[in-house]
């Protein structure tokens, strides 16, 4: 499969497509907990880090097969999400953001001092098992499941928690449990993305998973539109490609980033596709079509 791709695509393009896929899995996690459930999570890179290191150490030291390493990384990250989610999801808004940033830093400092993880130097020589077709197969599965979730009682309840917690409770929604589910699944996806990342880049160090990485991922969701699946996809594509395109203006990249966000917040405060419903688009298109046929 991947040999077919490599016939048509050059290595550089393949790299970007793979990174888009990995970022998408990571961003879908943030979209679930922050975009849908409304719990500001700025510690996603921490979970990514746990997944990246766990799976890399399994592959390097225990010789586990790729799939098992990946799975162990994701489950470990998910378990951490669950354990720290229970106390911290009592907090909301700014406080939750602060604590998740703190978590991300703690994880980074831990790996800086973690002998089996190579301390500050990190790990290298991780088998490069992540392929384009595998990443995108996962992406499609996760997107499909996420889409299904959104149209179920649990997905709707997540949106309800974001909209109005008191009303959500009055509808019988166990809001704290739902937040923990969202946080755990997001952490799992973070760990999965981390494992894919380490088995693609094949060299990782604690600096790769700093708080800035969390913000970068969060930006993708904000740009696309919190809670929107097509929005998240669009946001990830734009912000993964942007740095490549902006390589020419290297030093001004951050300036451009900031500018882009400010402009966005002025013109589309809910993100590019935030609050856009397929139903409305269809409705509008249908009206336009019937109008033109009448005129014609």
């Amino acid at each position: 499969m991947d040999s077919i791709f490599s016939q048509f695509l050059d290595a550089y393009t393949m790299r970007i497509i793979i990174l888009i896929g990995i970022n998408l899995i990571l961003a879908l996690g943030i979209n679930l907990v922050t975009g849908m459930t409304g719990q500001l999570n700025m510690g996603h890179a921490g979970f990514m880090s746990i997944g990246a290191y766990t799976s890399a150490i399994c592959s390097l030291n225990l010789d586990t097969p790729f799939l098992l390493s990946l799975f162990l990384g994701a489950v470990t990250a998910g378990a951490f999400g669950f354990i720290i989610g229970i106390p911290i999801l009592r907090l909301d808004g700014d406080y939750l953001a602060m604590v998740t940033i703190g978590f991300c830093e703690i994880v980074r400092v831990f790996f800086l001092n973690f002998e089996p993880g190579g301390k500050a130097v990190g790990l290298s020589g991780i088998p490069q098992d992540t392929t384009l077709s595998f990443v995108w197969l996962l992406v499609l599965i996760i997107l499909f499941l996420n889409y299904r979730l959104n149209r179920s009682r649990i997905g709707r309840a997540m949106f309800a928690v974001k909209e109005n917690e008191i009303a959500a409770e009055a509808c019988g929604i166990h809001t704290s449990r739902l937040k923990i589910i969202a946080f755990t699944v997001a952490a799992f996806l973070g760990g999965l993305g981390g494992g894919l990342y380490s088995h693609y880049i094949f060299y990782i160090s604690p600096q790769d998973f700093s708080f800035t990485k969390s913000i970068e991922l969060l930006n993708m969701v904000v740009l696309g539109g919190m809670g929107s699946l097509p929005g998240t996809v669009l946001g990830v594509i734009i912000l993964t490609i942007a740095p490549e395109v902006l390589r020419v203006v290297a030093e001004y990249r951050l300036l451009f980033y900031g500018g882009l966000m400010v402009i966005l917040m002025i013109f589309r405060p809910n993100g590019l596709l935030g609050g856009v419903r397929w139903y409305d688009v269809k409705q509008k298109w249908f009206k336009m079509k019937s109008k033109t046929t009448k005129e014609g």
Partner: peptide, 30 residues
């Protein structure tokens, strides 16, 4: 206190949350 940026239908569907029981995985895999 409605879920104001959700549809009228979704509001009522969420209203029935307390009497439905299917869990996360049951919903995920439909």
């Amino acid at each position: 206190r409605l879920f104001s940026t959700m549809s009228v239908l979704d509001n009522v569907l969420i209203g029935g949350h307390g009497i439905t029981k299917s869990g996360f995985f049951q919903c995920l895999f439909s």
